[in-house]
Design a binder for these strands. Structure first.
Lengths: 207, 207
DNA sequence: GGCTGTTCAGTGATAAAGTCACACAAGGAA
DNA sequence: TTCCTTGTGTGACTTTATCACTGAACAGCC
């Protein structure tokens, strides 16, 4: 709990009365790296608005394998929570903080009031939902049809600017929704091609 | 265009004034089997509410392979359209009518008015979104981790009560997001085990 | 009936990816 | 040091995907 300034774009355009409601009804919560926002099965406490940091949402299959579904960053909305909030069902996925994050929790009552009284808020929610749906459709396509070596290379290239990254093969396997051994072999092959240098818990990009 | 009775649960609880708006602003459109509601890239004309029939939504990857993302049936809402309606982006997927369908098209203006003035309508939209998101998450998990023979068997078992179904191996491959040859081989194996009888364009369940 | 073109299905060969089992290496703690 | 945990490498094998064909089933025609 701290001084509040409603630093989330979806709250910026609220009329004065709702703004006051929001200031009263909202609490900013700080989460550190590794903290779990929610797990599969948890009931939904409210709609999280991410102010900054990074949170990954992943799901674990019956087989025990996991896959990262999407990430939330600054100014993002945890769309997944809305459905759970509405139906009262538990979460199907879990959310883990990657970079220390600050989150505003919008409780059910306030959410309903905002939806009722602010067209901009509604628009923001709908847009967020639409984007999430599109992302997931693309992910289905990617998982179903794209080759693992392509997907791995693409994932790495997106981070190559950093020179080197700290990640285990197991974590990378969860990113891509595959098995650790597959990642190990593909990485080894890239190292043989001279594109990477591998060490325990770290991948370094050559050049 | 025909006599309208607003036969969709999301429209049932509208207050009288909105009800009149809906009766004026809506047109019921009949689509026959095989008709394409929208294709990838098409702009969104409005929110389709499915009154009856069945529509499948599928997407085609860069590789040219396709996969069925979900189906819409009686009393369903084409959630995917909302995002496109909001952002003005084109569709990423395509919708094909499987069983002759009747659809109400809600234009943008009326949609906004309904969202603004009916809490029940909002609730219906949010629930639909939530369900779709959950379905897609499950599909990601299924495609990423479940074995193809399991998924095929499950798909078939869900339809075994009908005795036999008309479908080509190619169509079944699109249902599961795999290649035709894979389906052919797995089906042949099931036939060898005496669980099926195969003929051109038809699968018959034994017993 | 017999031709002809099209769609559908079957299959071998090969490559990619997933699974299982295990060896070993790196690093931290006692 | 030794022990323990976590992370990585790899062989053997299965499942799935891809490529390249073959031939069967059906429809429309003469």
């Amino acid at each position: 709990m701290e001084k509040l300034t409603l630093q989330h774009s979806i709250l910026e355009t609220l009329p004065e009365s709702l703004r006051r409601d929001a200031l009263n009804g909202l609490q900013a919560i700080q989460f550190e790296h590794g903290k779990v926002l929610f797990r599969a099965g948890d009931p939904c406490q409210g709609l999280p608005l991410v102010l900054h940091g990074s949170v990954k949402v992943q799901m674990t299959g019956l087989s025990g394998n996991s896959i990262v579904l999407y990430r939330m960053g600054a100014d993002d909305i945890c769309t997944l929570s809305i459905g759970c909030l509405m139906t009262g069902d538990g979460f199907r996925a879990e959310a883990v903080v990657e970079e220390d994050a600050k989150v505003l929790m919008v409780p059910r009552g306030l959410f309903d009031r905002l939806m009722d009284q602010s067209a901009d808020f509604r628009l923001g929610i709908m847009e967020s939902y639409g984007r999430r749906l599109n992302d997931l459709m693309l992910l289905v396509e990617e998982v179903a049809f794209r080759r693992m070596d392509d997907r791995l290379s693409q994932w790495l290239e997106a981070r190559a600017a950093e020179g080197s990254i700290r990640i285990t093969h197991q974590e990378l396997a969860v990113e891509l929704g595959t098995a650790r051994e597959v990642v190990s072999r593909l990485l080894k092959e890239l190292e043989r091609q001279g594109k990477l240098r591998l060490s325990r818990g770290r991948i370094s990009f050559v050049q």
